[in-house]
Amino acid sequence: MITELAATTVVALPDNFGSDLGKGIGAIALYAIVGLVLMFGGFYAIDWTTPGKLNELVRSGKPNAVIVTASGMLSMAFIIVTAIMSSGYDLTAGLIKSLVFGLLGIIVQVLAVRSLEWLTKIDVGGTIESEKFAPATIVVAAVHLALGAIVAVAIFDPQVFAPAPVV
């Protein structure tokens, strides 16, 4: 005698699963849009403030242009990711913080590289146009990455947003 045993598995999802999933997809899309706008803005800010046409230099494979551009993009990503992570699951606050801190990061990056160029007398424009790798490119890339990290850490510092003590 053969007995058949029917197993029934019921997979139950929470009632709000669909709406939570939809909100998550929407949040990802909005953060991606803000991130892309900031990344493009950062790229064009570097391009605008640097002699030469950066996108053409990158496309033609100029090693120094590629390194400077990549470090600028990574720096912006540090800032954007930190702003998102510090938003405390508040989408509106996260988007605003990402946009504001990202714009501030772009301004800081441009000012820092221009200041570095002025202080060290590095010809950033000439360097990024070179066909050969220039060691000075590492200094420019380090400034981009360091400032991205500094701005990112400042976003996480609770003292940056703490109200002033009442005296």
Rank of each mutant, 00 (worst) to 15 (best):
N16G: 10
F17W: 15
G18T: 14
G18Q: 11
G18L: 14
S19T: 15
L21M: 14
L21G: 03
G24V: 12
G24Y: 06
G26Y: 05
G26W: 08
A29C: 05
A29R: 07
Y31L: 07
A32K: 03
V34S: 05
V37N: 02
V37L: 15
V37Q: 01
L38W: 04
M39G: 08
G41V: 05
F43E: 02
Y44P: 02
T50Q: 06
G52H: 05
G52P: 09
G52V: 04
L54V: 09
L54F: 03
E56S: 10
L57H: 02
V58A: 09
S60P: 10
S60E: 15
G61W: 04
K62Q: 11
K62I: 08
P63A: 11
A70V: 14
S71F: 03
M73S: 08
M73G: 10
M73E: 06
L74E: 10
S75E: 02
S75P: 04
I79H: 06
I80K: 00
T82H: 11
T82F: 13
A83V: 03
A83L: 03
M85D: 12
M85V: 07
Y89L: 14
Y89V: 04
A93N: 13
A93C: 01
L95Y: 10
L103F: 14
L104E: 00
G105D: 01
I106Q: 02
I107T: 09
I107D: 01
I107C: 07
V108A: 12
Q109F: 07
Q109V: 00
Q109W: 04
L111E: 05
V113T: 13
S115P: 00
W118I: 01
W118R: 12
L119C: 11
K121V: 09
I122T: 13
D123Y: 04
V124F: 02
G125F: 03
G126I: 11
G126K: 07
E129H: 10
E129K: 15
E131P: 06
K132P: 04
